[in-house]
């Protein structure tokens, strides 16, 4: 199959991931975290990746920056193609670890923000210092210019009194402020792709709403593409243009946000949507998905969801992974229920 080329989502490809397979060597054996997934990111668009724990949503994206732990193995056949600012196409899996080109891309063209903003800052330097440091690494400017960029950036991410905050240490900021500061660091290098890994999960709802709005505004301003990883379908609905649903290292469904939320076709996506408590169903039982997420150590054969799927077809779903079925230009589902209809 080919990675989806869709007309309704505009813009040229920025990132092309093909047959990505990542496993980890552990004491208990080899764990496959991501099992042959394909996706692409368009310039200036937001790709949302939803998944529960063990779905491989973080692992698959951290691999784009080659930030995986030492015991990880990216399969030889995997390909991560990134289009650099100068128009060159780079195969990220072939780059030397810690080599110059990878370092340039990391931070300079692809930036990362994640859940715990505290751990992304050094506690012994001021916020301002750390932004300047990042700017100097990737942009050819003087120290004074870097400082101006840093203050400008803090202002852009909605930190009041940027000149004063500039001199503060990370522990002096609240969780929301730190998350803003982390976004400032990430965006100060003017990346073309921002990976946001559960950036609002540890924040309160009012702060989360502000950060989501901020990211939307900044995207319009700066035009970077975003990969937004979360387990929260509400957040995904609010931020994403295109959505991928992951489960146990596989993509099960892909489509525009509207397609996924309103016209989801995969039993897992449907079940997930039904499992969210809704205000108008107060007091009623929720439609839960039975059973537990299988351990990645004992991945089920065939479709990974078949152990919990209501519509499981024994002898089919537990044997082979279904092929993608194209439901529209943008909507793809991996499920035998739909594959059969096609035939």
């Amino acid at each position: 199959m080919t990675s989806t080329t869709n007309e309704t989502i505009n813009g040229p490809d920025l990132l092309d991931v093909k047959d990505l397979k990542i496993s980890f060597k552990t004491d208990e054996g080899i764990i496959t975290a991501v099992d042959g997934i394909n996706f692409s990111v368009k310039r200036g668009q937001t790709l949302g990746i939803v998944g529960e724990s063990g779905s491989g949503k973080s692992v698959s994206t951290w691999s784009i920056m080659r930030l995986l732990p030492k015991n990880s193995i990216i399969d030889k056949s995997s390909s991560i193609q990134f289009h650099r600012k100068d128009g060159k196409k780079v195969e990220i899996t072939r780059l030397k670890p810690n080599g110059r080109e990878l370092r340039e891309i990391r931070g300079g063209e692809v930036a990362l923000i994640f859940q715990e903003p505290m751990s992304s800052f050094s506690p012994v330097y001021t916020i301002g210092n750390q932004i300047i440091e990042a700017v100097l690494q990737h942009r050819n400017v003087s120290k004074d210019e870097a400082k101006e960029i840093a203050i400008d950036m803090l202002d852009k991410v909605g930190i009041s009194n940027p000149r004063q905050r500039f001199k503060q240490f990370p522990f002096e900021l609240s969780g929301g402020m730190r998350q803003r500061a982390m976004i400032a660091v990430a965006l100060s290098m003017n990346p073309s792709l921002l990976i946001a890994d559960e950036p609002t999960t540890s924040l309160d709802v009012t702060i989360q709403a502000q950060i989501l709005k901020l990211m939307r505004d900044l995207q319009q301003d700066l035009g970077m593409a975003i990969i937004f990883i979360t387990h929260n379908l509400g957040v995904i609905a609010q931020v994403a243009d295109e959505v991928e649903v992951m489960y146990l290292g596989k993509i099960l469904e892909r489509g525009t946000a509207k397609e996924i939320i309103h016209r989801s076709q995969h039993p897992y996506t449907q079940a997930l949507l039904k499992a969210i408590p809704q205000l108008d169903s107060t007091g009623e039982r929720l439609t839960a998905i039975s059973g537990d997420i299988p351990s990645p150590l004992s991945r089920p054969a065939g479709c990974p969801f078949h152990t919990r799927c209501e519509k499981v077809m024994p002898g089919i779903c537990d044997v082979e992974m279904p092929n993608p079925t194209q439901l529209s230009d943008t909507h793809t589902v991996y499920c035998f229920l739909h594959e059969e209809k096609d035939v």
């Binding site: 009041s160 609240s174 929301g176 402020m177 709802v205 009012t206 989360q208 709403a209 502000q210 989501l212 709005k213 929260n232 379908l233 509400g234 957040v235 609905a237 609010q238 994403a240 946000a257 509207k258 939320i261 309103h262 949507l273 969210i276």
Partner: peptide
């Protein structure tokens, strides 16, 4: 009211319009 406005609706058609709260708790 501010809390309610910040709930992310599971609906891409309904854009969130959070009430802006000044500053921090």
């Amino acid at each position: 009211e501010a809390l309610m406005s910040a709930i992310p609706e599971v609906d891409p058609d309904q854009e969130m319009t959070p009430v802006h709260l000044e500053g921090e708790i």
